[in-house]
Design a protein around this nucleic acid. Structure first.
Lengths: 244, 244
DNA sequence: CACCCGGATTGGTCTATGCCAATCTATCAA
DNA sequence: TTGATAGATTGGCATAGACCAATCCGGGTG
């Protein structure tokens, strides 16, 4: 196996930070290049992978530091707040946009409404300990009068659906895939462009099998772990129309 | 929003390949650098992200090509074979190693057996249409006589457990996170080092709640999508000891 | 003391270039 | 026809250097 040089550098940096704690500074890229007798480009490639791994964080003008060993996980996105709270994080969310829009072809199919139907669109930035961890755009069919006000009052989207509109989620289908951050997402999430992300699409159904939400979430891959608990056999029923 | 040049190049390449079909060649890196009036380094960074996105594939000595729009998905890893078959892929697996080993501390905790207990280790490369898509290491507790022979006979690990040892999975907990490919994984999966991967850990329980497997799977992020179907409420019971 | 500003530091991007490794192709020989 | 081989092509890795942008720090000013 031919191992490129930047991979050796990566190992050496890992050895360096083994004795350090979260938040401790790592030597500058120029220093590392000199001590490892290599170029800054090679050091940067090694550091980039360590950042993607969640081992380091770096900020322009400040430096590079050992990352917090913070892998947050949620069991179900519907209990996002509880999960994070129980693990000691302070969950929060910032509503970036909330509006009524006309459903395009794909959205109509996902929500099983006629194309052009008016649906609600809720765009939020989800945070933990005031740090952005996910960008989320939810689409909800049906009339939901005063959604903005109620959501603002209760904070939680699912609590709002339950308490204000008597909508109770019974089944969710999540699809999880990887993506790489584009400049917009990177800016929102406070990570580098090109960083691996977890892209999660969620279809939520109530007890009748009616689609009550279709949501696209983008999580920072270096901070997050998704957990799914599945029964074998009985639950293996696809949500019709939920897959591409 | 400041958008770096390589991102513009990425967009321009996307425009180029919009009219092309899967397998069609893309101009060489040196050509692209010239037509976009930039350096090869910048072109390579743009291409690297497009490869991570699953839009392009490239091979040393051959060139760069438009990728197949192949996003495979499985609903449950326990029905890997059925899921892929039903979507037209030809699933297969290659047993790389199968042995009995002593459980170290972490493995013992995961499987809920004493440290040092003998457990089975099954390392496989999973394929679809003869293309590697996942590297999987399964650990199984308890005596499973002639496991290698039976697994070789039936092909499927879950079928073997069910038919030969009367072990039926009832509940699985999957955790999904991102990772980047190291040289070994890249070689096994046929992708670039540094490419985003889906790292999935699975704990499988039978009806009694006994842990019957603990498995670590690494999927190519550019080809794969994980699907989880979850009931809301009742199923939200953590698998004790399954989380770090 | 509080504030502002300018230089030094550090990461972010881009260039130009060289050589290596895998592949393909055209040629030549058996 | 078949097979080996040498050269050209293409991506893979690494270098050295330049300049930009964000941050930090220290000194001067009010």
């Amino acid at each position: 196996m031919k191992v490129p040089k930047y991979f050796h550098v990566k190992s050496q940096i890992l050895a360096l930070i083994a004795d350090l704690g979260p938040g401790d500074p790592v030597p500058t890229e120029r220093d590392l290049a000199e001590t490892f007798a290599t170029s800054r480009t090679t050091v940067r490639k090694a550091i980039a992978e360590l950042v993607a791994d969640g081992r380091l964080v770096h900020t322009q003008g400040r430096g590079t530091f050992v990352a917090e060993p913070k892998l947050m996980q949620v069991r179900q996105l519907t209990s996002f707040s509880q999960d994070l709270t129980s693990e000691g994080w302070r969950p929060g969310s910032v509503v970036l946009d909330i509006a009524e829009v006309a459903a395009d072809a794909e959205l109509a199919a996902r929500l099983r409404v006629p194309e052009g139907a008016r649906v609600h669109r809720v765009e939020r930035l989800r945070t933990a300990a005031d740090e952005p961890i996910a960008h989320e755009v939810a689409h909800l069919p049906g009339p939901l009068p005063r959604l903005a006000e109620e959501l603002d009052r209760l904070g939680s989207l699912y609590a709002t659906l339950r308490e204000c509109y008597d909508i109770e989620l019974a089944l969710v289908e999540d699809t999880v895939e990887t993506a790489v951050a584009d400049p917009q997402q990177a800016a929102l999430l406070g990570c580098d462009t090109g960083q691996p992300l977890l892209l999660i699409h969620r279809t939520g159904l109530d007890v009748d099998g009616t689609v009550v939400e279709w949501t696209r979430s983008v999580f920072r891959g270096d901070r997050f772990r998704f957990v799914a608990l599945q029964r074998v056999g009985a639950d293996a029923v696809p949500v019709a129309g939920a897959s591409k």
